[in-house]
């Protein structure tokens, strides 16, 4: 039985979006927005700016989608667009990218901001992050042990279902169902918080 890899899944979504299905692109936004902002936070300090640049990067990615051929993974392509969008933002905001030349590679394309990890987010965003994290951790702590183990091995350790089945000494089908039930349980506890956040936002 061949299964669809993560990269193939992204490629399928990209192809659907390329054929005009905008909803497929929304799913990619949903999946990658936090990872992209995390990358951008390495060189943009303010969390509202990070969110704006994240948004702009996705719009640019959508416009550039016809030129994406799947030669690289979607997310590496997206990250590149994100980095360029951040550079433009910093330049136009008159803030020379805090990168000095020594951090750039030969083609001047890498922004390695590791040296100045800002973590300088606005209090509201920071509070929301903390709340989400606390809710997820609390929900995980309340899970029955076999669900907690399964979801942890999957999400934190990145193990495949087969590896988890071996580690937990149970059939793959059981692993699959435990991971799903763990996600459902956590999502149920998270939902009220996310709904509140949405209402505040709008």
């Amino acid at each position: 039985m061949t299964t669809m890899s993560d990269r193939e899944l992204d490629q399928q979504l990209v192809e659907r979006a390329q054929r005009g299905e905008k909803r497929a692109f929304d799913l990619l936004v949903s999946k990658y927005q936090r990872r992209l902002s995390r990358l951008l936070s390495r060189f943009i300090r303010d969390s509202a700016d990070i969110e704006d640049v994240t948004q702009e990067a996705f719009v640019k990615a959508y416009r550039a989608l016809p030129s994406f051929r799947g030669e690289s993974a979607f997310y590496t392509w997206l990250y590149r667009i994100g980095i360029n969008t951040a550079k433009n933002f910093l330049t136009s905001a008159g803030r020379r990218p805090v990168v000095s030349a020594e951090y750039e590679d030969e083609d001047g394309d890498t922004l390695d901001m590791a040296s100045q990890v800002p973590d300088y987010h606005t209090p509201e965003a920071e509070m929301m992050n903390q709340q989400i994290l606390a809710a997820v951790n609390a929900a995980v702590a309340r899970l029955p042990e076999e669900l907690r183990t399964a979801i942890s091995l999957r999400e934190m350790e990145g193990l495949s279902y087969e590896e988890i089945a071996e580690a937990m000494n149970c059939p793959i089908g059981t692993v699959r169902s435990r991971i799903f039930r763990a996600r459902e349980a956590i999502a149920t506890e998270l939902r009220p918080l996310l709904d509140t956040a949405k209402n505040k936002r709008w």
């Binding site: 905008k22 927005q33 965003a125 998270l190």
Partner: peptide, 29 residues
Amino acid sequence: WQEFHLIGDALRGASLLSVDVRSEVSSTL
């Protein structure tokens, strides 16, 4: 899909969980 991905990011310790640009992006698009 959105919730499960958020949970995964939270468990992996991502720092910007509050970011949500879905509606902004899709209304622009």
